[in-house]
Design a protein around this nucleic acid. Structure first.
Lengths: 238, 238
DNA sequence: ACAAAAGTGTTAGTTGTACACCCATGT
DNA sequence: ACATGGGTGTACAACTAACACTTTTGT
């Protein structure tokens, strides 16, 4: 039935907030096909790796992997013509996240581009980036995924800016703090940072209590009986 | 870098509630490897299909595809040794759902097995089934995915039994109805069904207002401002 | 003193849970 | 009549949104 060989690659949409915008790490292709267009980091799957291992290895070529705080699978892109006339290649796409204070050295052909103002992308990489952005937005709301975008310690207003940039709509600092502390996702460090030249009260520093992904609002409805709703953050689904 | 050929297959964990239990469609392998163990339907990806097309084609060999009300991608299983010593095969796994009133004719080697009492499964298919069950449970809570498990019309107590079987914990018929109607997921048909021999009030029939997947509770927190919370079911993520 | 930024208090509206109660039917 | 399953009403608790108000700093 199947006869032609099918290759398999992994691709990562690595997102970071820089300059108050949500950006994705892309590199400019020098060679055909799609020379001059911007592509996601990734490459062919090795013989002895699974896709998770492979994507982490390939990312190491673009950024210091220790800066990537979260990686998760998106979906498979398998349109037989997704690479145009070239040989068939199936891609497993990933979302990667980097905290806003990381500033990894990048190769010359590589840059952070705003996801809502993308240059021409290679192949179907724009679809993958859309998937990544949608996944991030959804999970910011019902998980503690903010930890992957934020520095180790941060003020509430800095955190608010991250959420605004990622979600694309206004977020109230007041309510953000209340929601996140009530869910025990945030804790104060006890430290404060002095205000800028315009004055203002010094801001308290916070950190995320847990830096592994937790679902904080699953079973929003149809919760098992007898359990108060704030109870029990659960390990995570896709 | 890569030299050995890598095959690609699709696999589907098709779930249905039968006899008040959540079951999965599996077939018993007759040939090695893993003869006598139970496997998910699926097979090699064809030259001119994407994975979604392929899984629907392959399912057609086991069940009447018109009975499958929902199909979505789970994740990729790519451990180099997932097929034991055989040639390497990467699997894209899917969740499929069939309404409880469907009773498709099945080949002799194929059966519905309860997901919480599985026989020995081939390869890593038990992991895929766990993924499928977890995904279903999560989405039942924050989407209208119940439509894919339920008949076209149903009583609240029948629907309650479906949720109990799928979620594995008690669900109150009262609150289930209230939650689903408040979110405008359910509407009465106006019809009723007569009670059984034990008597009781005739039950009203309901249907889901929309039979495409909608997220009803995303942005549970951090919702865009100015919008009442029940408003605006949104098209769906992963 | 005043402006600016951070943080807290208060109120109102919405949602989900629990449970009591009423309804329609068979025996 | 009474048992049985179906459906509604009500009270309560938790949560979020909105906004006014207080706190702490710089100029």
């Amino acid at each position: 039935m199947t006869s032609h060989p099918i290759g398999h690659e992994v691709l990562a949409a690595v997102l970071q907030i820089r300059g108050e915008r949500l950006r994705v790490l892309v590199w400019e292709r020098a060679m055909e096909p799609d020379a001059g267009r911007w592509a996601l980091p990734g490459g062919r799957l090795g013989d002895d790796e699974d896709v998770e291992t492979s994507v982490r290895r390939q990312l190491a070529e673009k950024v210091d992997v220790r800066e990537v705080t979260h990686v998760e699978q998106l979906s498979v892109f398998s349109d037989p013509r997704r690479m145009g006339e070239g040989p068939r290649l199936i891609a497993t796409a990933f979302l990667g996240l980097v905290p806003s204070d990381a500033d990894p050295a990048l190769p010359d052909d590589t840059a952070w581009h705003a996801v809502d103002d993308l240059p021409a992308t290679a192949f179907d990489h724009d679809l993958i980036i859309d998937d990544a952005r949608d996944r991030l937005r959804a999970k910011l709301s019902y998980t503690n995924l903010g930890f992957a975008l934020a520095p180790g310690e941060f003020t509430i207003s800095a955190l608010r800016e991250l959420y605004v940039a990622a979600l694309g709509h206004p977020v109230s600092a007041t309510n953000l703090q209340r929601v996140l502390t009530r869910r025990d996702l945030l804790e104060p460090t006890g430290e404060t940072v002095p205000p800028g030249r315009a004055g203002g009260r010094p801001a308290a520093l916070f950190r995320f209590t847990d830096r592994s992904l937790l679902v904080t609002d699953a079973f929003a409805v149809l919760r098992p009986p007898g359990r108060p709703s704030g109870t029990g953050a659960r390990p995570v689904l896709p």
